[in-house]
Simulated scan of single mutants.
Amino acid sequence: MMRFEGKSVIVTGGGSGIGRAAAIAFAEEGASVIVADLTEGADETAAMIGGAARAIRMDAGSEEDVIRTVALACEKYGGLDVMFANAGISGGMANIFDTSAELIAEVLRVNLIGPFLAIKHAAPRIVERGGGAIVLTASVAGLRSGAGSPAYSASKAGVINLAQVAAQQLSGSNVRVNAICPGLTETGMTKPVFDYARDAGKIDRVGRLNPLRRGAQPEELARAALFLASDEASYVNGQALAVDGGLSSSHAVTRQDYGKTAA
């Protein structure tokens, strides 16, 4: 499939995890990709892709950096068709009473102001190309409590609402805005959890709260993002797609394995 042949795509947070998997997948399907990240991972991802990619160091929560990144896509590829605003930080796991206002502000700056800036500066360029898509990375933590820290959860709830508001405010532009809501996924952010489980011989317990009984790999989230960015999702707009193994489909319950009955 070459769903993005001739398309220009920006992926923020493209230096690792979901962003890297998505950047590679976009390129494999014909896109020219701007890989944006605060770290040298951007250069590594671009090198993995080859000539169809350009790397740029950028802070997703900096308006100047977002403007530079969009300008680079327009300069190198003649415009912009897809923005995948994926960059984010975790903010740790402290509870409300142990979380500082400074930490909340920084998490919101990157995780919420970042997607806001991506929409603000990418959408007009996408409109110039006749339409396209913006995909934001939210989280199941933004759907309800229990999947992240107060700072992270609040920021991702804001991303979900931002996708809805942006979809409405871009009415008639042929620019769709949607969000993906990952569950537990093996990325740099969650690496300590997966590494600890492997070292302890307990990897089978990771993700056990969802019906699939496992965590996700970045490529699984990338495929969902590419679907929302593609013409296959041409009538999907203003939505938050949970990609979480079924975690958010239920309130917390005690489950039995399929085919087993209570003793």
Rank of each mutant, 00 (worst) to 15 (best):
L209S: 15
D244H: 13
T69A: 12
G188Q: 10
V140N: 05
A138T: 03
N86T: 04
R213C: 09
A118Y: 01
T137S: 04
T45D: 02
G215Q: 10
F194I: 04
D65F: 02
G201Q: 08
A52H: 13
E5Y: 06
A85P: 12
D59S: 07
Q164I: 11
S155L: 01
V11T: 07
G92Q: 12
S234C: 08
L72W: 06
P218W: 15
Y235F: 15
T69W: 05
K202Q: 15
G78Q: 05
A163C: 03
T137H: 00
E102T: 08
P115L: 02
Q239Y: 06
V70R: 04
R213F: 09
A224K: 12
L38R: 14
Y77D: 07
S62M: 04
L184T: 14
G132K: 02
E5D: 15
M2W: 06
E40A: 14
I18G: 10
Q169L: 13
P150L: 02
M2K: 15
N95E: 12
A151C: 02
T45K: 01
G148R: 02
A179T: 07
R176I: 05
E40C: 00
F116M: 11
A21E: 04
N161H: 15
T12I: 07
A166M: 08
G14S: 08
R214P: 06
R223V: 04
N210H: 13
G246N: 10
S100K: 06
S234K: 09
G148D: 01
R129M: 02
G91M: 11
G61P: 02
L80Y: 06
A85M: 11
R68G: 03
Q217D: 14
A224M: 13
E40K: 10
L72Q: 07
V206C: 07
A27E: 11
K7M: 07
L226W: 11
E44H: 05
L221W: 07
G183A: 13
A122N: 08
Y152P: 01
K7W: 05
S153M: 01
V82N: 13
R125I: 08
G215I: 11
L117Q: 06
R57G: 03
R3K: 14
F4N: 04
A167W: 03
A263V: 04
A252Q: 10
M1E: 12
Y152W: 00
T99E: 09
S249K: 07
D204R: 13
A53Q: 09
E29S: 10
A242W: 08
T190W: 02
A52Q: 15
R214N: 05
T185L: 08
M83Y: 14
K7I: 06
A224W: 12
M2Y: 09
S139H: 01
D59Y: 06
G215R: 10
S149M: 00
S149W: 01
A52R: 15
G172F: 00
V177C: 11
V107P: 00
T261S: 14
I56Q: 00
A200V: 00
A141P: 01
